[in-house]
């Protein structure tokens, strides 16, 4: 094999890997909506996540510091937070159609750091959850799925930009 042929094969390999990796990084498990941000802290991500949630028209409700509760019982781990948010009218309407959705409310996104200092955002896809309930809720769950994707994308973009700028 000539050097030129070798170079072509190597180039194709690099291109293939380049195409595959981003797909794997985003929503590798189709049941989940997931994003990962290299070198970002959970605190910075939480701030941007709250902004993105409010820009999407939801009320930001609270943050549960799971890591702090675990630490209080002697289980140390990197930051692990759950952000709760929602829309009262949409929840009332959903419960009228199928009260079984009650324990799945409010909406939430999990934010956690790994031991390498990367931050991950994760949530089970509402469109998947919605299949388990009254079909009349399908449109609502799919709308929440789309909204959550936008929230995750906006948060990821803003945090990456901040990290890049060194803010």
């Amino acid at each position: 094999m000539t050097f030129k042929q070798l170079f072509t094969v190597f180039g194709l390999l690099v291109a293939s890997v380049g195409m595959v990796i981003p797909v794997l990084a985003a929503d590798a498990n189709p049941n989940f909506l997931e994003r990962s941000i290299s070198g970002a802290h959970a605190g910075r991500t939480l701030n941007q996540l709250q902004n993105a949630i409010e820009q999407e028209g939801f009320s930001f409700m609270r943050v549960q510091n799971v890591d702090e509760g675990l630490a209080g019982s002697g289980f140390e781990r990197p930051p692990y937070k759950i952000v709760f948010f929602g829309n009262r009218e949409k929840f009332v309407r959903a419960r009228e159609i199928d009260p079984r959705v009650t324990p799945y409310l409010p909406l939430k996104i999990t934010v956690y750091e790994d031991d390498k200092g990367n931050t991950h955002l994760s949530v089970v896809d509402p469109a998947v959850v919605g299949r388990m309930f009254n079909p009349r809720l399908k449109d609502q769950f799919e709308a929440w799925s789309k909204a959550l994707k936008r929230i995750l994308d906006r948060t990821t973009k803003e945090v990456r930009a901040e990290t890049w700028r060194g803010d």
């Binding site: 799971v66 675990l70 209080g72 019982s73 289980f75 009650t102 324990p103 939430k108 999990t110 994760s122």
Partner: peptide, 30 residues
């Protein structure tokens, strides 16, 4: 409510179990 020991083990298996958290029971009339 929470069982921190159980939660810690579950998180070691898969960090996405935040989907189930917090452990909660809702109570309402129907």
């Amino acid at each position: 409510f929470c069982s921190f020991g159980l939660l810690d083990k579950a998180l070691q298996t898969d960090e996405r179990v935040g989907t189930f958290l917090p452990c909660q029971i809702t109570v309402y009339r129907d």
